[in-house]
Nucleic acid binder design. Structure first.
Length: 286
DNA sequence: ACCCAGGCGACGA
DNA sequence: TCGTCGCATGGG
């Protein structure tokens, strides 16, 4: 069935195409994606959002996934004094930081290194198609998609146990390049418990401590650890520095980032700046 | 043909 | 602790 949530600070298109997730697809004004083995459609309304094909019992799950409990209007006041951030906020209004599944987020951002978003998306899609499990699409969602070019088969993100049993050669169809061995190493360390993701789901765990756990994986450095902590564990104090952020730091903040980018909502500021840099092309040479 | 992408590890100074 | 380089792949 459908669930409607009133919330004026949620923009599905901006949130789901902002480079924090790689598994949502647009079909007209409906985004479809999978989390927790469930597929739903997400459609923005005048003053809220509808989850198509979601069950009432899943209300808390999706509310948490889309971070609808946090008052972003309040958070944004932290950034109002900064000129660049104010502009960035205007063009990113309605973006939220998702709470994605940890293993999926970890692997996705391992794949992201020295890579671009369209290609990351393709590799993640092939990973799910090859090693995930088929997900049943609810009839309510299928009905809405009648007449749309909607894929018949959807696959979950494979778990650590599944991937830990594979070899680099098994991953060749993904065309992940040098990242294949990083994926295997991550899956093995997560599955063995050497990297305990459940332990990281604890806001009281000191940030650097959590980060060092993730960095035990070969191919996980500061940036990927930061992204995993931000987009899966909702550590809003994370501030991942990718090439876009480095450009904007060099171009717009030669004397350093404002304090609000080091505080408890640094990750939200980071996401605004990331979008600003990508949309305006700040610092990028042509 | 080049350059680049939500980086990282190895290596040398 | 710091820069620099190679890494696979594919799109611009």
């Amino acid at each position: 069935m459908d669930i409607y949530i009133e919330n004026e600070f949620f923009d599905a298109e901006r949130t789901l195409t902002s480079g924090q997730c790689f598994r949502w697809r647009a079909f007209g004004n409906i985004f479809c994606g999978i989390a927790d083995g469930k597929i739903i459609g997400v459609r923005n309304e005048e003053k809220g959002v509808t989850w198509i094909g979601a069950e009432p019992i899943e209300l808390d799950f999706w509310t948490r996934y889309f971070d609808l409990a946090l008052d972003y209007n309040e958070v944004n006041k932290c950034f109002a004094d900064d000129n660049i951030l104010s502009q960035a906020m205007d063009m990113s209004k309605g973006i939220r930081i998702l709470r994605q599944e940890p293993f999926e987020t970890l692997i996705s951002f391992i794949i992201s290194q020295n890579n671009n978003i369209p290609r990351i998306t393709g590799i993640v899609e092939r990973l799910c198609k090859c090693f995930g499990e088929k997900v049943t699409v609810p009839q309510t969602l299928l009905d809405k998609m009648n007449g749309v070019d909607f894929p018949p088969d959807w696959y979950s993100f494979p778990n650590a146990e599944r991937l830990s049993a594979l070899t680099e050669q098994d991953l060749e169809p993904l065309h992940a390049g040098f990242r294949a061995r990083y994926i295997i190493d991550a899956a093995q360390k997560v599955h063995s418990g050497e990297v305990n993701l459940k332990q990281l789901d604890n806001p009281d765990l000191p940030y650097e401590e959590a980060k060092n756990v993730l960095k035990k994986i070969v191919g996980v450095g500061d940036k990927i650890a930061d992204c995993t902590l931000l987009f899966a564990f909702h550590r809003l104090d994370a501030f991942p520095k990718d090439v876009w952020i480095k450009r904007i730091m060099a171009e717009c903040y030669p004397n350093g980032l404002p304090d609000c980018c080091c505080g408890s909502y640094a990750g939200i500021a980071q996401q605004y700046l990331f979008e600003y840099a990508r949309k305006t092309g700040v610092g990028k040479k042509k």
